[in-house]
């Protein structure tokens, strides 16, 4: 049918049309079908995303007063461990003096903490290699050569700012979304 229509148009205008009516109809039907299918499929995909009650549990508040300098705690946020570490002034100084060019995943210390809260490091406590939880919150834990965290699975080492210093981990410990609500209270998420 398209050929017949095209032949008629050729006869009338002397040159073949670029788009026939049939092409237009096919395109219209096809795009309608694709949009319709997408509109049907989206609720099914979104159904599997976190539900509202799961999202409602996605922030935790942490009181910082009980954490002595040189130690950290682990809190659970969205089912993941989050390290909240209180660094000593020496640890802060050492971390700030580290040359960024020496790092595997370069980031200055200032990018790892909130302005004005240099002693406090808040990182997601999951090794960026294969998902183990590094040791080092307690002073008695192995902390590796850089005084931060040491992953028992494959020996990755992190400094006190959670930056990776020795592999196999490819990247620094991830930073969660967080904010200081006061000097002694932080809200994660």
């Amino acid at each position: 049918m398209a050929e017949v229509a095209a032949a008629q148009t050729v006869a009338q205008h002397g040159q073949p049309p670029i788009v026939s009516k049939r092409d237009f109809l096919k395109l219209l039907t096809g795009s309608g079908a694709i949009i319709g299918t997408g509109a049907l499929v989206w609720p099914f995909i979104d159904y599997m995303n976190p539900s509202k009650d799961v999202l409602a549990l996605s922030s935790v508040e942490v009181d910082l007063t009980p954490i002595p300098a040189g130690q950290g705690i682990t809190v659970s946020w969205r089912g993941k461990p989050v390290f909240v570490r209180h660094r000593t002034p020496e640890e802060v100084k050492k971390s700030q003096d580290t040359r960024v060019s020496d790092l595997l995943d370069p980031a200055p210390d200032s990018a790892r903490v909130k302005p004005g809260h240099a002693p406090w490091v808040v990182v997601i406590g999951i090794c960026t290699h294969l998902g183990c939880i590094p040791l080092g919150n307690k002073p008695t834990d192995p902390r590796g050569d850089y005084g931060g965290w040491f992953c028992p699975c494959h020996g990755s080492q992190y400094d006190t700012a959670g930056r990776v210093r020795r592999g196999p981990a490819p990247a620094n410990l991830e930073l969660p979304t967080y904010a200081f609500e006061s000097d002694t209270k932080v809200k994660i998420g």
Partner: peptide
């Protein structure tokens, strides 16, 4: 995926599907 076949939870899990689950 979101229903709980337990007499203690079944009714609430259906209400959760209605209110909290996306497009539930």
């Amino acid at each position: 995926m979101n229903y709980q076949p337990n007499t203690q939870m079944a009714f609430d899990s259906v209400e959760r599907i209605m209110r909290d689950v996306n497009y539930g």
